[in-house]
Design a binder for these strands. Structure first.
Length: 383
DNA sequence: TTTGCCGGGAA
DNA sequence: TTCCCGGCAAA
């Protein structure tokens, strides 16, 4: 029986647990249940099968044992019978194994980010710094954080599937996000600002210090939730990045402000009087730029796609017939002296507005006006 | 390098 | 007349 053979190997995991603790890779000495510690060890052993002598079969058995152990635990997310779960997971891990743990591009490297022996390893070039290993994702295990987050480790594929947001990204991004995100919890009580690394801790802090309750968390009515906030450091999430636009301080990040533009938030009386777009749009873009600069490790293509979309909205919404460039040029023409006909005798001055080619792109050439298709003066977007 | 489009030519 | 494109100039 496979299950029984797997269960026989469980003692070795306990030994590994102790070994791991001796190595001091997990500085967290809080009261973590033995079950959870086992899960950490499980994920660690999964992550670095290649760092040890690569006897694939033995590792597979370990992995299987790990999965069985996980599925036998009280995880509410696992609804299937344990044996079936172990088989399915084993299959996926076998696939990873056949792909070769030495291949850096292997999609099995998700575990590598939790590897406790990663720094001395020869392999993964994208392996993160070790201090984030076990402690960094601990807040995600706190049940109060989210309805879909169970106590099971993040490497559990069933959990990955429940996280709908992760499906929006390419495969490597969630891995990076898991690794590079550090979540802290800040007390919002007036004149407090205490920062703790766990939501339970901050809740206890609020409950005891500010709310004056001495009872345990089980008698809490959840009021503490209103008095603390989550602080994500070095997050990779695009949604987080966009949602955190407002807290970014432009003065701190010193965005590239053009000389004619007012400083964002400088309190100019009526900056939108003459040309709203030329004022409002850049300041919005500064925020985006600053935020992007702040998140130096963010998935650039994702942010840029959002940025592009945002820019498109900003430029197009006020006027369907005039582009931002046209409005700006007209404003400049009004405010400054009329241009002399220096180029009037030569070629017709090229219009600043976007034409069909620019608007629709080469791939949508059939949407161009006839003149543009014939490389003549555009008839749709006339200047 | 990209874009707008004039000038010219083919069908 | 319709359609296409070489090539120039501006951005």
């Amino acid at each position: 029986n496979r299950l029984s053979s797997v269960l026989e190997k469980l003692p070795s995991f306990v030994v590994m647990t102790e070994e791991l603790k001796r190595l001091g890779r997990d500085p967290d000495t809080r009261s973590v249940s033995l079950l959870e510690q086992k899960r950490k060890v499980v994920s660690s052993s999964i992550d670095v099968p290649h760092s040890r002598r690569s006897e694939e079969e033995v590792d597979m058995d370990k992995v299987t044992a790990a999965m069985v152990l996980t599925s036998l635990s009280t995880s509410p997310l696992v609804r299937s019978p344990p044996v079936k779960v172990s088989e399915g997971l084993c299959g996926s891990w076998k696939d990873n194994g056949s792909a070769g743990p030495f291949t850096p591009s292997s999609n099995s490297s998700s575990g590598g980010y939790w590897s406790w022996s990663a720094p001395s390893d020869q392999s993964n070039p994208s392996t993160p710094s070790p201090p984030l290993s076990a402690d960094s994702f601990k807040p995600f295990r706190v049940p109060t954080l989210g309805p879909g987050q169970g106590p099971t480790g993040l490497e559990d594929p069933s959990l990955e599937e429940q996280d709908g947001s992760s499906l929006l990204f390419d495969e490597p991004i969630p891995r990076k996000r898991k690794n590079s995100m550090k979540v802290m919890f800040k007390c919002l009580w007036k004149n407090c600002g205490k920062v703790l690394s766990t939501s339970a801790g901050i809740q206890r802090h609020i409950r005891t210090i500010h709310l004056g309750r001495n009872c345990d968390s089980d008698c809490s009515d959840g009021e503490e939730d209103f008095y603390y906030t989550e602080i994500k450091l070095n997050t990779d999430s695009v949604a987080d990045g966009l949602s955190s636009l407002s807290p970014v301080s432009p003065s701190v990040l010193s965005p590239p402000v053009p000389p004619s533009a007012p400083l964002p938030g400088a309190g100019h009386s009526d900056p939108l009087r003459h040309h709203p777009l030329s004022r409002s749009a850049p300041s919005a873009l500064y925020l985006i730029h600053a935020d992007h600069a702040y998140q130096a490790t963010a998935p650039v293509h994702s942010i840029y796609s959002k940025l592009t979309f945002l820019c498109f909205i900003l430029q197009m919404s006020p006027s369907k017939s005039q582009s931002f460039g046209e409005q700006r040029s007209q404003t400049i023409a009004v405010l400054s002296s009329p241009p002399r006909a220096t180029t009037a005798l030569s070629r017709k001055v090229r219009g600043e507005g976007k034409k069909c080619r620019k608007v629709y792109g080469m791939e949508n050439r059939d949407m161009w006006c006839t003149a543009c298709r014939w490389k003549k003066a555009c008839q749709r977007f006339t200047d």
